[in-house]
């Protein structure tokens, strides 16, 4: 292992973290602008051209805000919770491949940080951690609304993780590997959404529930629970929760595109443009995915908590199981 390889890893890790953070900032802007358009408003357009500096202004505001810790809060856990929430969100995309190998500075560089042979498992494992952050945030605030929000979030994320995991198994079975790179490479001609539309729909719905987005934004149901688990948070600690939510939006879009929509390998051949057609493929899909998520938020009312649990356990979970069984049988019959 040479020093250059270590440098390569460090740079790639830094790039991913910076990309996700900057992506978060601009997804908030995208959301506000798109929502505004759909709601016959204008949206933020004062800071910089087209409001492009709005995220900077928001960031500066949040940094300079006073950080209150409620008198009866459990201070250590209260501070720990946002950190626990944001870190899994930042590292989750480490296994998502952006493209095949490219030549950079005279050496071949694969456009992914790591090709784990258990990539999909890694994703499922890391998403589970962020539940702790939210549950602890709700609990440590010592506020009834926050506690209820935190409990709802925990129940919701745990229930939907099952369906989510089962939906992610379908492409894994099709590709015969848990490595994200192998999954993408086996979609060069045909993305898995064509063969696995049911799994794709289950993935889409449960990922919305997993990241607490409308119409499953129960934990932070503003109209019932004020702001849910982050009611008592202010300043940068609040910003971290906010950041985790939006980074997770990008992450599920990236993972979903990789598993079902052909990732970097489809529709442009990824070797074009010296290998940089791969990232273009991926990011275009991510943008469309994010747009759909925002679109849903503008259109749909919130689903009620008990109905949400009903859908998770009694609709999505059995359907996902049946889908897995059928996929397995077909794979065995056709011969993989």
């Amino acid at each position: 292992m040479d020093a250059a390889l270590i440098w390569e890893w460090v740079i790639k890790s830094l790039f991913i973290i910076l990309f996700m953070t900057a992506g978060f900032a601009y997804v908030t802007l995208l959301e506000r602008r798109v929502l505004a358009r759909m709601q016959v408003r204008i949206g933020p357009n004062r800071a910089g051209p087209f409001g492009l500096l709005q995220p900077v202004a928001d960031g500066v505001k949040l940094i300079f805000k006073e950080e209150l810790i409620p008198a009866y809060a459990d201070k250590f856990v209260f501070v720990l919770a946002p950190v626990l929430t944001v870190i899994p969100a930042l590292i989750i995309t480490a296994v998502v491949p952006w493209g095949p190998q490219v030549m950079l500075f005279g050496r071949p560089v694969p456009l992914y940080l790591v090709d784990l042979n258990i990539g999909v498992l890694y994703i499922v494992a890391v998403t589970s951690i962020s539940v702790y952050g939210i549950a602890l945030a709700g609990w440590s605030s010592n506020n009834k609304y926050a506690t209820m929000g935190g409990l709802r979030a925990t129940a919701q994320m745990i229930s939907y993780e099952l369906a989510l995991g089962l939906a992610m198994l379908a492409p894994v079975m099709m590709a015969g590997s848990m490595s994200m790179v192998d999954v993408v490479e086996s979609q060069r001609t045909l993305p898995f959404i064509v063969l696995q539309p049911v799994a794709f729909l289950i993935y889409f719905m449960s990922s919305l529930a997993e990241i607490n987005r409308a119409p499953f934004d129960m934990p932070e149901a503003e109209q019932e629970l004020t702001a849910g688990y982050h009611t008592e948070y202010s300043g940068m600690k609040f910003a971290l929760f906010f950041m985790a939510e939006y980074i997770k939006m990008i992450a599920v879009a990236m993972i979903g595109s990789t598993l079902f929509l052909g990732g970097y390998a489809w529709p442009l051949p990824p070797e074009w443009l010296g290998g940089f057609a791969g990232p273009i493929n991926l990011l275009a899909k991510v943008l469309v995915w994010l747009f759909v998520i925002i679109w849903l938020r503008a259109t749909l009312p919130r689903i009620r908590y008990d109905r949400l649990m009903f859908y998770g356990w009694k609709v999505l979970f059995p359907v996902a199981l049946v889908n897995i069984v059928i996929t397995a049988v077909v794979i065995v019959l056709v011969g993989g």
Partner: peptide
């Protein structure tokens, strides 16, 4: 409608 989470309708009604 806003209370039920359908936020766009609020702005249409205000228009």
């Amino acid at each position: 409608a806003l209370d039920l989470g359908a936020m766009s309708l609020f702005l249409y009604a205000m228009r």
